[in-house]
Amino acid sequence: MNIIRRQFKNLSIISKNLIQNTYCTKYPTLPEKWVMPIKICSVEPQKSGDGGIDYKIAETDYIQHFDKSKELQNCNEILNKLCSVKYNRKKELVHVRRIKALELVQRHKLDRGSMESRIAAATVEIHRLQEHYNICKKDIQSKVFLKELIEKRRKWLKKLRLIDYSRFEFLLEKLNLTYHPPLEQDIRLTVKYSTKKLHEKRCDQIIQQKLDTYKAELQGQQKDFFKEKAEKLAFIRKEEIECGIVPTITELQIKEAEAKAASFV
């Protein structure tokens, strides 16, 4: 029994040596300790891709439909305040915001059905709901509506990209949005998966570094190589002419090699 055990020990040592010679068993060490990324709610602007729009609305601006009245302009301050955005409910402010956002992208004054105006109106609503979500996080009903609206807008953007690419880009710029396509496969993050990926990334970096240094080394040798090439080509041409054979090398080839050697200073 003891003999078999000793044999086993030897076998394990041999196999370990074999593996070390053939495969990379030790990964390169990582510079920092891995930390799990913080989970961000899908409703928040970082995930939904909202950069925010500058609506340019002052507190003294009138609410919807009141801005065109001439009688209000001659009235006293108290009446003006009552019709302003500041002293009204938030819904009135959102109405004004919607008009401003639609003006950025609308085709004409009555346009509400085109893809641009639909997306613009949705973004205004999303901004309102995101502000509401920051105040009361337990309002699940509005959170669900917000998530559905974000996904609906993403679907519209995906559709618009296929139909009309330049209009899609115009919208992203005007409404300050970022667009990410959906994930191909959703993976549950684990320590094993993420450390493996990080090691792979580090290995790739090391390989790239070595390749770059080797490339630089080869490029350094190019000057002498082309100089030697031009000399040897000229020598072969001269010998062939002296022997009475039709030369295989043209003068153009020699000149090209000389010009390449001169280009490396």
Binding site: W34, V35, P37, R161, Y165, S166, F168, E169, L172, E173, L177, T178, Y179, H180, P181, P182, L183, E184, D186, I187, L189, Y193, S194, K197, L198
Partner: peptide, 20 residues
């Protein structure tokens, strides 16, 4: 076309889940 690539429009390369 394509002037917002890698700025706002991230469709040219595969998207992945952040692992670090």
């Amino acid at each position: 076309k394509g002037y917002l690539e890698d700025k706002k429009d991230f469709t040219q390369k595969p998207v992945y889940k952040k692992y670090y």
